[in-house]
Computed example of a mutant assay.
Amino acid sequence: MNNRLILSIAIPALLTTLLVVMSLAITVGAANINWQDVWLIVFAELPYIHQWIEPSWSDSTETIVLDIRMPRVILAAIVGAALALAGAIYQGVLRNPLADPFILGVSSGASFGAALVFAFGFQVVWLGKFTLPVVAFMFGFGTLMVVYFLARIGQKVRMETIILAGVVVQAFIGACLSLVMALANEQLQTIVFWMMGSLTLTDWSYNQIVLPIILICSIIALFYARELNMLGLGEEVAHHSGVSVEKTRFYLLILASIMTGAAVSVSGAIGFVGLVVPHIIRLIVGADYRLILPLSIFGGAIFLVGADTLARVLMAPRELPLGIITAFLGAPFFAYLLRRTKREYF
């Protein structure tokens, strides 16, 4: 079965699944809403269609759907897609099946920036409420630059060196983060909850911030599928196939880290999405990144929307941190990958 045929079948199926999961996610919560009402409320907001729909729901129901749950569900889909695609890119570039979006310390840097905002309560006047995501993103991206600088030897960056540099920088930032938490006092609980992953601070404006960034990076990344396939065959093969290895690797790491930083800046550190989803896709369709990259986008969105729904309803009206749910779902799969990798190498 060729790639085009697989994509023509898989993408509509995954898109349909995503829409179903998102609509179900909007219906459940502290106040259950009829599935039909959800779609009627959505269609009532569309031009040329709203005039044919007679409102049969309360104002409070409309507020819950449009202002509370829908922006959160959409943001969960955006963040999940970004983390899954970033994970697929990292695994391809680093040629490491256990790589995930947080391996180079981007998440730690973003968490440190967010902790500073929470602990000391500062806001940039012209950024207002967007201070938190902007500062978190800048710290995350700055961390990547530090890691890449430390790993660079002459004009080359070896993959084992960049991974070690990521470990070192993560350890240092972890110490800085612990210091901030020790000084945080009454803001400690907020910092800890955010670090475990949460979409509770969501509104439409957050979607408007991260969607353009992640959409542009995702489109660019899809054009690098062939290069990722070549990198998977080794540096020499990639070089003789016309791939500029160092430049391609750098661009892909930048793209994946921008997506990770943007996602973490609005959701906190949510683990295992970028590890689990690309592997499930790889097990189903094989190692061709022309399939893995686009399918990971939809798979990540479905995975995180489902996980966020569980986080909201398992102990309702109390909400669990999203990172706990993804860890419970992802840790067993990580153990399976680790055991499988050990069998291959030993």
Rank of each mutant, 00 (worst) to 15 (best):
Arg4Gly: 13
Ser8Glu: 01
Ala13Lys: 00
Leu14His: 02
Leu18Asn: 02
Leu18Met: 11
Met22Cys: 14
Val28Asn: 01
Ile33Ser: 03
Trp39Arg: 03
Trp39Pro: 04
Trp39Gly: 15
Ile41Asp: 00
Ile49Trp: 09
His50Gln: 15
Pro55Val: 11
Pro55Asp: 10
Ser56Phe: 09
Glu62Gln: 15
Glu62Asp: 05
Leu66Ala: 07
Leu66Met: 15
Ile68Asn: 02
Leu75Ala: 09
Leu75Asn: 10
Ile78Arg: 03
Gly80Val: 08
Ala81Lys: 09
Ala84Glu: 07
Leu85Asn: 07
Ala88Pro: 03
Ile89Ser: 03
Tyr90Thr: 07
Gln91Ser: 08
Gln91Trp: 06
Leu94Asn: 05
Arg95Met: 05
Asn96Gln: 12
Leu98Lys: 08
Pro101Lys: 13
Leu104Pro: 11
Gly105Trp: 05
Val106Thr: 13
Val106Tyr: 09
Gly109Met: 04
Ser111Arg: 04
Gly121Arg: 12
Val125Thr: 13
Trp126Gly: 06
Trp126Cys: 12
Thr131Gly: 13
Val135Tyr: 07
Phe137Leu: 13
Met138Asp: 05
Gly140Met: 09
Gly142Pro: 04
Gly142Asp: 08
Val146Ala: 13
Ala151Leu: 11
Arg152Tyr: 00
Arg152Trp: 00
Gln155Cys: 00
Val157Ser: 10
Met159Ala: 08
Glu160Val: 13
Ile162Ala: 09
Ala165His: 05
Val167His: 06
Phe172Arg: 05
Ile173Gln: 02
Gly174His: 09
Cys176Pro: 00
Val180Trp: 11
Ala184Thr: 09
Val192Glu: 13
Val192Leu: 14
Trp194Ile: 05
Leu199Glu: 01
Leu199Gln: 02
Leu199Gly: 01
Thr200Glu: 12
Thr202Val: 15
Trp204Asn: 10
Ser205Asp: 14
Tyr206Thr: 00
Asn207Leu: 13
Ile209Cys: 06
Val210Phe: 10
Leu211Cys: 09
Ile214Glu: 07
Cys217Trp: 03
Cys217Val: 11
Ser218Val: 03
Ile220Trp: 09
Ala221Met: 03
Leu222Ile: 12
Phe223Met: 10
Arg226Trp: 14
Arg226Cys: 04
Glu227Thr: 05
Leu233Ile: 08
Gly234Asp: 09
Gly234His: 06
Val237Cys: 08
His239Asn: 14
His240Asp: 12
Val243Gly: 08
Val243Thr: 15
Val245Ile: 13
Glu246Cys: 01
Glu246Val: 11
Thr248Ala: 09
Phe250His: 12
Ile254Pro: 00
Ile254Asp: 02
Met259Gln: 13
Ala262Trp: 11
Val264Asp: 04
Gly268Met: 04
Ala269His: 08
Gly271Ile: 10
Leu275Glu: 10
Arg282Gly: 07
Leu283Pro: 00
Gly286Pro: 11
Asp288Ile: 01
Asp288Trp: 03
Leu291Lys: 15
Ser296Leu: 06
Ala301Gly: 12
Ile302Phe: 02
Leu304Phe: 06
Asp308Leu: 03
Leu310Ile: 15
Pro317Glu: 08
Pro317Val: 07
Arg318Glu: 15
Leu320Met: 14
Leu320Trp: 10
Pro321Val: 13
Leu322Cys: 07
Gly323Phe: 05
Gly323Gln: 08
Phe328His: 04
Phe333Gln: 02
Phe334Arg: 01
Leu338Arg: 04
Thr341Pro: 00
Thr341Asp: 14
Lys342Tyr: 12
Lys342Ala: 11
